[in-house]
Write a protein that binds this DNA or RNA. Structure first.
Lengths: 230, 230
DNA sequence: TCAAAAGTGTTCCTGGTACACCCATGC
DNA sequence: GCATGGGTGTACCAGGAACACTTTTGA
């Protein structure tokens, strides 16, 4: 039974830019290969149609899980993308979302409308469907703003990490190098890091001390925001 | 002829939170009274349906002009609002926009789907249709962030204004009072103000000097952003 | 002469920035 | 012993914050 409306309606979709950090590889984004038209076979952000009985926030979480297996991820809305020709085959409007995940936490796996799901480095993206390249660039912009007010590094790193790891994350996100001494001073001053009695293993140099974030202080920081001007 | 689709589609609309500043009255928002269902007779943000052959950015400008007479206004997107029950009568998703205008520049006039168009102070809003109250609060939040990076005062004030006028704008937006001497020092240091050989008239006190912004320097500031931490 | 707001500088202190050398480890 | 990154402290400077009195004008 087709659905009938007095006036035409654009298709409404949601898309998720899920970012992760690969040690030694920089920022990564999770892509799927489309199994269906339009843009069949091309790489794209996970996403899909909004159903009538779910909010757009719920829709993007569902689509992400369906297509990549990533579940229980809290996504933040970026904005709507509504250029007339963004989908050459029909009028569609999408709402972009983004989030940060630890690569180590998630083994991604293609499913439903995706024939593959893979992490790609932001610096070497394949040709993407629709305006997904623009969505990713808005996500990156948002992430850069976020560094000032949220402890983003900890969403991206494994539980235990060295201060150098953390600095590399910030350098990858901001796209510039930072002063080691000043970075450590500032990040330790936030008071959300706990020094562990543990060092890196199997490195061909002096092993770095490992840290983790203090869960309570970290939650407070997330909620109240921080002021971290690197 | 009704339009038919294989899957159901939410209605897609756009809404504009147009903010102005009234001397002595604080921040104002432009509202219309709805002439049509749903929410007929209730006050709401100007807005309406997105057509198939226009971008969402174009749609919001068109709707604003149609309903209030405000034309050639550059609106900035906030985000999409897509809770399932935001419109109790049907599934609809809206994209919120906002902009700043000089009250003095615009005589608003209701038209098409609006039976009235009026400025309301943000502090005394009537009961609003749908989730428009939330859209306004997101707009205000965005405006506060904007004070750091854009010379917002000048979008809201008449061409000639005193430094006290400008300070009142920032106080209204930020919701706190500012130190007069520090404010003047900082705002003059931006180098986008031109001192005029002209004073206020008809005030029952010492008249304040008037300023205007230097057009060239102002445009540069808009483009490159400023750093203005009041 | 009173009320009301205009206009004006200085001091203190915090916090950012720049900067170089020794240390520990694995090979 | 050498290459590699780990780890550490100081000095300078800019800019923010706090703060009070005199001036002008109209009523």
């Amino acid at each position: 039974v087709p659905y009938r409306y007095t006036y035409p309606r654009p298709v409404l979709t949601v898309d998720a830019a899920v970012l992760g950090y690969l040690m030694g590889g920089g920022l990564m984004v999770l892509l799927i290969q489309r199994k269906l038209a339009p843009e069949r076979g091309r790489w794209a952000l996970p996403g899909g149609h909004v159903r009538m009985n779910e909010s757009i926030d719920d829709a993007v979480g569902r689509e992400l899980e369906e297509e990549t297996g990533l579940a229980n991820v809290k996504l933040e809305q970026l904005q709507a993308f509504g250029a007339v020709k963004r989908d050459p085959t029909r009028r569609s409007v999408t709402v972009g979302y983004f989030t940060l995940v630890k690569l180590s936490d998630h083994r991604v796996q293609a499913a439903t409308d995706a024939s593959a799901a893979e992490w790609y480095p932001l610096t070497r993206l394949p040709e993407l469907a629709f305006d997904h390249c623009e969505i990713i660039s808005v996500a990156l912009q948002r992430l850069r703003e976020r560094t000032r007010t949220q402890p983003i590094g900890f969403a991206l790193l494994p539980t235990k990490f060295s201060l150098t790891d953390l600095q590399r994350v910030y350098e990858a996100v901001l796209g510039r190098s930072l002063d080691k001494r000043n970075f450590r001073k500032k990040v330790l001053a936030l008071g959300i890091l706990q020094e562990l009695q543990e060092l890196e293993r199997n490195v061909p140099r002096r092993a770095a001390r490992l840290y983790r974030f203090k869960p309570a202080a970290y939650r407070t920081a997330i909620q109240n925001g921080i002021y971290f001007d690197v």
